[in-house]
Design a protein around this nucleic acid. Structure first.
Lengths: 255, 255
DNA sequence: CGCTTCTTTGATTCAACTCAATGGATGTGG
DNA sequence: CCACATCCATTGAGTTGAATCAAAGAAGCG
C-alpha cells in the first residue's frame, strides 16, 4: 500500500453515519439527526480488508464494535482441539463484537469472507455517548438482544433437525437477510465455502454438497459455484418447518 | 407452608440486593454501597412459584428482567410445529429476560423446574437507573454479553459432538455453575427431567438414559433418580474435549 | 502449466434414532 | 391400604441418516 493510497483512504475514512445508506439498518437506527451527528464524531470507517484478514482475533483487547459496511464476515470460536466452529455470518449493516463486553477481550475470531469494509465504534467512547444519547443506549441493548434471539433460533435449527432442514433453513435465512439489505431474495452469492456452510450447520462438506445437488435435481435451487438462485422459495420455506412425525407434538408442545 | 410462614415471606419480599447473599454473582455485582441502595428501591422480590409455573411466556409484554434467587428455571422456544426446544437452564444469581429487549415482548417461555423464588427488575426503570449508575449499565451489558458467549459455547457443544461428549459437557457445566454458587461440585440434584436434558442436548430420552447408565457402569458417576454424584471429574472433563480423530485438526484449525 | 485447494460423487459403516416393552415411582379414589 | 392409572425412566432390537473413507473432477493461483 503506497503513501498516496493511505492519504486517499484516510480522507475517505471520514464516512459519516448520517450519509450512510445503511443507517436505518445499522447501529444508528432510529436516531434523530442531532444524535446522528454526535455519533459521527465517534464512528470511524476502515479501508477495505481482504478475504482472510481479521477484524479481530480471540483474546484481542476489546477496542471497538464493528459494523459491516460492505462484504461479509464470519465469526468463529475454537474448541479444545483447535478446530474451528463458526458461530455466525455477518452482512452489511450488522454489528459484531458484543462477545467482548463481559471480559473486555474478544471470545472469538472475526474474519472477512471477501473484500470487506466496516466501521468501528470505539468502546471507550460508547459508554459516554450512550449516556449522552439515551436512544443509542436503547439501540445497543436492542442489537445485543437481537443477537441473542438469533442464536436461540440457530440452536433450534441445529439441534433437532435433519441435514435437509438445516440447509433449507440456512438458505432461507440468507435470502431473508440479503433481501432486507435491498438485494434480490432469490438470486445471490454465497460468500462462504461449502466447508464453512457445513461447519456452521454441524454437517460434513460431503453432505452439504450432496444436498445442494439434490435440491437442484428437485428444482428447488439452481447452483453454480457460489452463485445460487432459489427457484422454489415456498417449498424451501416449508422444508424449514420440519415435517416430522406429528406424534412428537404431544410430547413437547404446550397446551 | 403455614400462614405464619407466608407472613414472614411477604415481609421478606422487601429483599434488598445489599443484604442478598447472591449479590456478588448477580446483577449488582461490583456496585458500591451507594449504588446498591439505589438499586434496592427498584428490585422487587417474589413469593415462591411452583414447578410448572411461568415467570413469563412467549409474546408476554416485557415488564422486567428476572434474577433467580432460589430453585431453577428452564427457558424454551417453540418451533413451527409447536414442539419445545429448551435454550437454557437458570440457577440462582442468573438473570433472564434479555431476549425481550429488542421487540419489547418475550421471545421464549420461562418455567420453574421446581419451587423457585426470584427478583424482578422493572424494565421501565432500568433505563433511568442505568443513566444514574454507569456501573450498572456496564454490568447489564456484561451480563447480556456473557449470555451470548454462553450460547456460543452451547452451539459448539451441540453442533459437532457425540452424544457422550454432549452429556459429559452438560454435567460438567452444571457442576461448575453450582460450585460457583457455593454448592458441591460433585454431588447435586438434577432439577430437570431426562426428557428435558435430551431436548436441550438434541438427543432422545433413550440415549440420555443409556448414557447415564453407561457412565455409571464406567464409574464416572453415581446416579439415583435426580441425585447425581460425579465420581470421576477429571475423566468427565477430558470427555468434553472430544478425543476425535486428530486429522480433522488440520482441516479446521488456525495456523 | 503444474500444483494446491475445493467440490462432487460413490461405497460402506456406525452412532443415534425409532419402535416396543417393561419397570418403578407417584398420585387418586374407593 | 390397596388397586389402578399415569408418568417417567430404563432396556432391548432393529433401522437409518449422516459420517467416514476413497477417488476423481474442477477451479484458482503462482
Amino acid at each position: 500500500m503506497t503513501t498516496s493510497d493511505q492519504v486517499i483512504s484516510i480522507s475517505k475514512l471520514k464516512t459519516s453515519c448520517s450519509t450512510c445508506s445503511l443507517h436505518e439498518l445499522c447501529l444508528p437506527r432510529g436516531l434523530n439527526s442531532i444524535d446522528l451527528e454526535k455519533l459521527d464524531h465517534v464512528v470511524k470507517g476502515s479501508r477495505p480488508i481482504q478475504k482472510g484478514d481479521y477484524l479481530f482475533r480471540l483474546n484481542d483487547k476489546f477496542n471497538a464494535f464493528y459494523a459491516v459496511r460492505s462484504g461479509s464476515v464470519k465469526a468463529y470460536i475454537l474448541n479444545e482441539l483447535g478446530e474451528e466452529q463458526i458461530i455466525g455470518f455477518y452482512f452489511p449493516g450488522e454489528v459484531l463484537g458484543f462477545d467482548a463486553i463481559d471480559q473486555n477481550i474478544h471470545t472469538c475470531f472475526a474474519m472477512a469472507l471477501e473484500t470487506t469494509t466496516y466501521c468501528s465504534i470505539p468502546y471507550d467512547r460508547i459508554h459516554d455517548i450512550c449516556m449522552q444519547i439515551p436512544d443509542l443506549q436503547k439501540q445497543m441493548f436492542r442489537l445485543i438482544s437481537r443477537e441473542l434471539t438469533n442464536e436461540n433460533k440457530m440452536l433450534l435449527t441445529i439441534n433437532n433437525r435433519t441435514a435437509e432442514e438445516k440447509l433449507a433453513t440456512f438458505l432461507i435465512s440468507l435470502s431473508t437477510r440479503l433481501h432486507k439489505l435491498g438485494y434480490s431474495a432469490i438470486e445471490f452469492n454465497l460468500p462462504m465455502s461449502r466447508q464453512e456452510i457445513a461447519n456452521y450447520l454441524g454437517l460434513t462438506i460431503e453432505t452439504v454438497s450432496r444436498l445442494l445437488t439434490k435440491f437442484q435435481r428437485e428444482q428447488l435451487i439452481q447452483i453454480d459455484k457460489k452463485e445460487i438462485k432459489l427457484t422454489n422459495l415456498s417449498e424451501l420455506h416449508s422444508m424449514c418447518e420440519g415435517a416430522r412425525c406429528p406424534s412428537a407434538e404431544g410430547k413437547n408442545s404446550v397446551a
